[in-house]
Computed example of a mutant assay.
Amino acid sequence: MILYNVTVNVEDSIHKDWLNWMKETHIPDVMKTGMFKENKILKLLSKLPEEQGTTYAIQYFCNSLEDLENYQQNFAPKLQEDHVKRYGNKAIAFRTILEEV
């Protein structure tokens, strides 16, 4: 099992809209690609006093690296572009790939 983890720090000014858009639009669009079997959205509870905003980990599970590579090549650019157009630098993401052992 492969985990594609997208960690996003979201500014307070857009937090409510961002979370709703992720749950109602973006995550369903990612799942419609057929490359992932399951997803979870988690909120980071531990943060340093100087940290701003709220941080989330959106986890997408797929069966193989081939499925993930297919997603990254054929679907991710458009979906990520939609996110950047809507939120710009108010929701900053970074991605990691993990393998279940």
Rank of each mutant, 00 (worst) to 15 (best):
K78M: 08
L48T: 02
K90N: 13
G53T: 07
W18E: 01
E66H: 09
D29L: 09
E24F: 09
I41H: 06
P77F: 03
E51N: 14
L98G: 08
W18D: 00
M22R: 07
R95L: 10
F94L: 14
I97R: 12
M35A: 03
F61G: 01
I41V: 11
I41F: 05
Q73A: 11
H15C: 01
N9G: 11
A93M: 08
T7G: 10
Y4E: 11
S46L: 15
I58T: 09
V101Y: 14
Y71S: 10
E11Q: 15
W18G: 01
Y71N: 06
L45M: 01
N9M: 07
T96N: 07
W18F: 04
K16P: 08
K37L: 14
L79C: 11
N39W: 01
K40W: 04
Q52R: 06
F94C: 10
D29A: 12
L3C: 07
E51M: 08
D17P: 00
V30K: 11
L45N: 04
L45W: 03
L98M: 12
M35N: 03
M22F: 05
W18S: 04
M1S: 01
L42C: 07
K23A: 14
I14S: 00
T7Q: 14
L68E: 06
Q73I: 08
V30D: 09
A57G: 02
L19N: 09
L79E: 12
M22A: 15
H15E: 02
S46T: 13
Y56V: 07
K43M: 02
D17A: 07
I58R: 06
E69V: 00
S46Y: 09
N89F: 14
E24R: 13
D12G: 05
D67M: 13
A76Q: 02
K90L: 12
T33I: 05
I27T: 08
E38G: 07
K23N: 15
L65T: 05
Q59Y: 00
D82M: 11
N20Y: 02
L42V: 03
V84S: 07
N20I: 00
T96R: 03
G34N: 07
V10F: 07
R86D: 09
E24N: 15
N63T: 13
D12F: 00
L68P: 14
W21N: 00
G34S: 10
Q72M: 11
L68V: 11
F75T: 02
K90F: 12
H15L: 03
E38Q: 14
S46E: 14
N20V: 03
K43G: 01
S64V: 08
G34E: 06
V101A: 15
I97G: 13
I2V: 09
N5K: 10
R95Y: 10
L48C: 07
K16I: 08
T55P: 04
N20F: 03
Y60Q: 05
N39E: 02
L19G: 09
I27L: 11
E24V: 09
L65Y: 14
N70V: 05
I14T: 00
K85H: 13
T7C: 13
P28S: 12
P28R: 11
I97C: 12
T7E: 15
W18T: 02
V6Q: 03
D67Q: 14
